[in-house]
């Protein structure tokens, strides 16, 4: 029913949260609903105070004209959907939408392909494979600001290691982060690097659920590794793949840190995504402009929710089958 359950039962590699499949409905201990509500009460209060209320304030921001003065005094004028109209007609909108699409799609496609290749590779099991697989988690665990600033320095035009290696092979200096042609590419590369561990771990645990006998039967039939991958691994992994890709999509839509630290969305709007646009309007300049920022943010929620529901739908279907 949930991501957690589906993936946990899809095979937690360490067996930490392994559990028997849950029967549909079970009678619990005879306690009253009030007790149950009591235990859930902190969460309910928390969700209302720290999810519902901020989100409501966010909608409130987007339908008023909040200047800084109005923000402090709290007497912003109600403008309805005017701010949304402004956002849609802004020249940044098509750029940000396009950048978001490119950044997201390219990121998840490469993260997935590389993650899957590595998962298949690690599954074959060799000396040190467990240790090396653990090492692959490191990029995922580092604070994003650490990875992003390291990448920024590696891609530095004059002193970066990447340009230095390119120069050794006779390449020209590329202004990775400061040229409008490569800024989006640079942040996408860094983001792919960040997402590989997540894809690797999930796909690896998905692979472990494919029984070894299937492969043995296939090799008896004379199928080589390539054939085995396309006729067994890939089709059997499809449910896990779908979930991995959708989760990757939902997470990538939200990315702010990496892009902001590496390029702040620039030069110009060259690497501005919707999330960056929203962040920049509200917090990135000396002149906070909360209303359009909130409008862009709400738009982003809407997009995320569409794919979120797709994800839930997919998961429900898998549960039924």
């Amino acid at each position: 029913m949930t991501t957690t359950e589906a993936l946990a039962t899809a095979g937690a590699p360490s067996g930490v949260d392994r559990q028997p499949p849950r029967p549909r409905r079970r009678r619990g201990p005879a306690v009253s609903q009030w007790t149950a509500v009591g235990f859930a009460a902190p969460l309910l209060v928390y969700l209302i105070l720290f999810y519902v209320y901020p989100l409501w304030r966010n909608i409130d921001l987007s339908v008023h004209d909040y200047t800084i003065r109005a923000f402090v005094q709290g007497n912003a004028e109600f403008v309805g959907f005017e701010k949304y109209a402004e956002v849609f007609s802004s020249s940044t909108f098509p750029t940000a939408l396009w950048n978001t699409a490119v950044f997201t799609v390219v990121s998840i496609v490469f993260q997935y392909a590389i993650g899957l290749a590595l998962a298949v590779f690690f599954r074959s099991g060799f000396r040190l494979s467990g240790l090396l697989r653990a090492m692959f988690l490191v990029p995922w665990l580092l604070p994003l600001i650490v990875s992003a600033s390291t990448w920024a320095w590696m891609l530095n035009s004059d002193n970066g290691i990447v340009n230095s290696v390119l120069a050794a092979f006779g390449g020209e200096q590329i202004n990775w982060l400061t040229s409008p042609d490569t800024a989006l590419l640079s942040v996408t590369i860094a983001n792919i690097w960040l997402g590989i561990p997540f894809n690797l771990v999930i796909l690896y645990s998905g692979l472990q659920n494919i029984p070894g006998e299937v492969y043995e039967a296939a090799s008896l039939d004379g199928a080589g590794p390539w054939k085995q991958f396309w006729s067994i691994t890939f089709p059997l992994l499809r449910p896990v793949s779908a979930i991995t890709l959708l989760l990757g999509l939902i997470y990538t839509l939200k990315v702010v840190d990496v892009i902001w630290i590496m390029t702040t969305g620039g030069p110009g709007d060259a690497s501005t995504t919707l999330a960056i646009w929203s962040y920049r309007e509200a917090f990135g300049t000396g002149q906070p402009d909360f209303s359009p920022a909130a409008a862009v943010g709400n738009l982003l929620i809407l997009i995320a929710l569409v794919f979120g529901f797709l994800h839930l739908q997919l998961q429900r279907r898998q549960e039924d089958s």
Partner: peptide
């Protein structure tokens, strides 16, 4: 699924 940047704005206002 809610982006952190949206939560940040809401929290800022609150």
């Amino acid at each position: 699924m809610i982006p952190a940047v949206v939560m940040a704005m809401g929290f800022y206002a609150v």
